[in-house]
């Protein structure tokens, strides 16, 4: 069964989600990659705070088009590898009261702890599905640090509709990535004759 969620999301709602749940996410979310995460941890800027509370961070460096009227359109916008934000993610979630992170590849123990402590989940989007996901971006609300960071690294505040996601890390300490890792480790050791 697919669960429909809309930002802002309450802590109670997010704690109901479990690993394996399929979600269609709507509402305002914010893209942030390496430079944005570094900035949020080191400088704790306030300009992004109102957009992040109860919202979701999307690990994404989009292709964006500037329209003749000055507005922006997302052209291709799949997820980027999340593990690069591992040093920062838990702190960002707790500092800005973020309820979820969207990315690909999953994250590590520190983030899993952060999800549990502050009430958030990790959503997995389909990596490489750039055009499909851009289609569910209805509008660009605002952009920050575009000049300083460039298009992929800027904070893009966007409104999405029915973004298809799977919960792969929940707020109860479970991670699909760890389960697949352990199972594949067994097989790997067997095939490599290392058991």
């Amino acid at each position: 069964m697919t669960i429909k969620l809309k930002t802002p999301i309450s802590e109670e709602e997010i704690r109901k989600l479990k690993v394996g749940d399929e979600v269609l996410l709507s509402g305002i979310i914010v893209t942030a990659r390496d430079q944005a995460h570094k900035l949020m941890v080191e400088k704790k800027p306030d300009f992004i705070r109102p957009y992040l509370e109860g919202s979701v961070i999307y690990h994404c460096g989009p292709v964006v088009r500037r329209e003749p009227d000055g507005s922006w359109t997302f052209v291709s916008a799949g997820p980027t590898t999340s593990i690069r934000e591992e040093p920062y993610q838990a702190d960002v979630i707790c500092e800005y009261r973020v309820r979820g992170v969207i990315g690909k590849g999953g994250m590590g123990k520190k983030t899993l702890e952060g999800l549990k402590k502050c009430g958030a989940v990790y959503f997995h989007a389909v990596g490489g599905a750039g055009t499909l996901i851009a289609n569910s971006v209805k509008r660009v609300v605002d952009v920050f640090m575009l000049e300083e960071f460039g298009t992929p690294e800027a904070f893009w505040v966007i409104e999405v509709e029915d973004l298809p996601l799977v919960v792969t890390m929940d707020s109860h300490g479970k991670s699909m990535h760890e389960e697949v890792l352990e199972k594949s480790r067994e097989k790997f050791l067997e095939l490599a004759g290392l058991k």
Binding site: S76, G78, V126, G128, T131, L132, I133, N135
Partner: peptide
């Protein structure tokens, strides 16, 4: 996504 990208002539993946 592959079908849409070809049809709309937009990048399959944003990277």
């Amino acid at each position: 996504n592959v079908r849409l990208a070809r049809e709309k002539s937009t990048p399959i993946c944003q990277d």
